[in-house]
């Protein structure tokens, strides 16, 4: 088989795999709507404010509820619990008073 034919075959295979994955994304997103609604419902019923992503410190566990001055609270070398602390930033433009 010619090299160009092999290349286009390879490219077609890649495109097909990517299409299948994109189809998977669409179907999964659709199928997980109930799960998402359940999570949203749990948040509403328990009056939660944050995602449970980083549990090592209170200002990384509840990012939106943290004090506005939290640098180096635990000890000077904690560096805001790097890397968790470096994934986020303060809300800069606040509408609230």
């Amino acid at each position: 088989m010619r090299n160009s034919s092999l290349f286009f075959l390879w490219l077609t295979l890649d495109v097909m795999i990517l299409s299948v994955l994109l189809l998977h994304a669409v179907l999964t997103t659709h199928a997980q709507q109930t799960d998402l609604a359940d999570k949203a419902s749990l948040v509403k019923r328990l009056q939660l404010t944050d995602l449970c992503l980083f549990t090592e410190a209170r200002y990384t566990r509840h990012l939106s509820q943290a004090d506005l001055n939290t640098a180096f609270q635990d000890h000077p070398l904690s560096l805001e619990h790097f890397p968790s602390g470096s994934f986020t930033q303060p809300t800069l433009h606040s509408d609230s008073p």
């Binding site: 509820q65 994934f87 930033q89 609230s96």
Partner: peptide
């Protein structure tokens, strides 16, 4: 200190922002 819902949502809009250290 009142924290409004928009602020909570904005906090998570800015999470993993490219300006963050690791990102």
């Amino acid at each position: 200190r009142p924290i409004i819902r928009d602020e909570i949502l904005r906090t998570y809009e800015s999470i993993f922002n490219w300006r963050g250290g690791m990102m």
